[in-house]
C-alpha cells in the first residue's frame, strides 16, 4: 500500500481503534451530554469571517442571521473548542508517531494540480452536504449512529452509497 518507513509508528488495529473511539464518544455523551462533531466549527468560523466582511448580508440571511444575533458570539460554541481539540490531538498523534510532515497525499496516478482541485471541490460539496444534513460523518453518522437516531442511520448508509456510486468514476485518480 503506502510506503511506510520504519521510523513511523504503525496504525492501531482497526477494531481496537474503533473501541477506543467508541469510548471517547461515550465519554463525550456522559460528560457533555453531546456527541462529537467535525463540520459545525467550519460553519461557525466561515460565518464569523463572512460577518466581518459583509455584516448586513449575513445578518439578514434566514439561515445565518440568528447565529450572529447580538448577545452571543458565533465562535462561542462547544463544537468550536472540540474541533480545535481535534486539530491539536491529530497533531500530537502524528508528531509522536513520526508522521508529521508537509506533504500532498494522493493516489499514485493523480497529478498535484488535480489533487489540489479535488480536495477543495470535495470539501465544498461536503460543506453544503453537512449543513443540509445538520452534521457530517462525525456529528451524524458516528454520534447519531451511536445514539440510535433513525435519520442518522439513513445518513450513514447514504454516505457509503454516495461514495460507492462515484468511486468507479474516480478509480484512475485513487488507484
Amino acid at each position: 500500500m503506502e510506503n511506510k518507513t520504519s521510523s513511523e509508528a504503525p496504525f492501531w488495529n482497526p477494531y481496537l481503534a474503533g473501541i477506543v473511539l467508541g469510548l471517547v464518544l461515550l465519554g463525550s455523551f456522559v460528560v457533555m451530554g453531546n456527541g462529537l462533531g467535525g463540520s459545525g466549527a467550519a460553519n461557525r468560523v466561515a460565518i464569523g469571517a463572512a460577518h466581518i466582511v459583509a455584516p448586513q448580508a449575513v445578518e439578514n440571511n434566514a439561515y445565518m442571521g440568528p447565529m450572529v444575533a447580538p448577545g452571543q458570539h458565533i465562535l462561542d460554541d462547544w463544537l468550536v473548542w472540540e474541533v480545535l481539540g481535534v486539530f491539536l490531538g491529530g497533531a500530537l498523534a502524528a508528531y509522536s508517531a513520526g508522521r508529521m510532515k508537509l506533504v500532498l497525499l494522493r493516489g499514485p496516478r493523480a497529478t498535484v494540480a488535480s489533487r489540489l482541485v479535488m480536495a477543495i471541490l470535495g470539501g465544498l460539496v461536503m460543506g453544503v452536504a453537512a449543513r443540509l444534513a445538520r452534521g457530517c460523518t462525525s456529528g451524524q453518522a458516528l454520534t447519531g449512529g451511536a445514539a440510535l437516531a433513525a435519520g442518522s442511520w439513513v445518513f450513514m448508509f447514504a454516505v457509503f452509497g454516495g461514495g460507492y456510486m462515484v468511486a468507479p468514476l474516480l478509480r484512475r485518480y485513487w488507484k
Binding site: 460539496v125 452536504a129 447514504a158 454516495g162
Partner: peptide, 16 residues
C-alpha cells in the same frame, strides 16, 4: 445530504 457527502468524501479523500 448523506449521498452528497459521500460524493465529496471520495473526491476529497477525507470527511470534514
Amino acid at each position: 445530504g448523506g449521498l452528497l457527502l459521500g460524493v465529496g468524501f471520495i473526491g476529497a479523500g477525507y470527511c470534514p
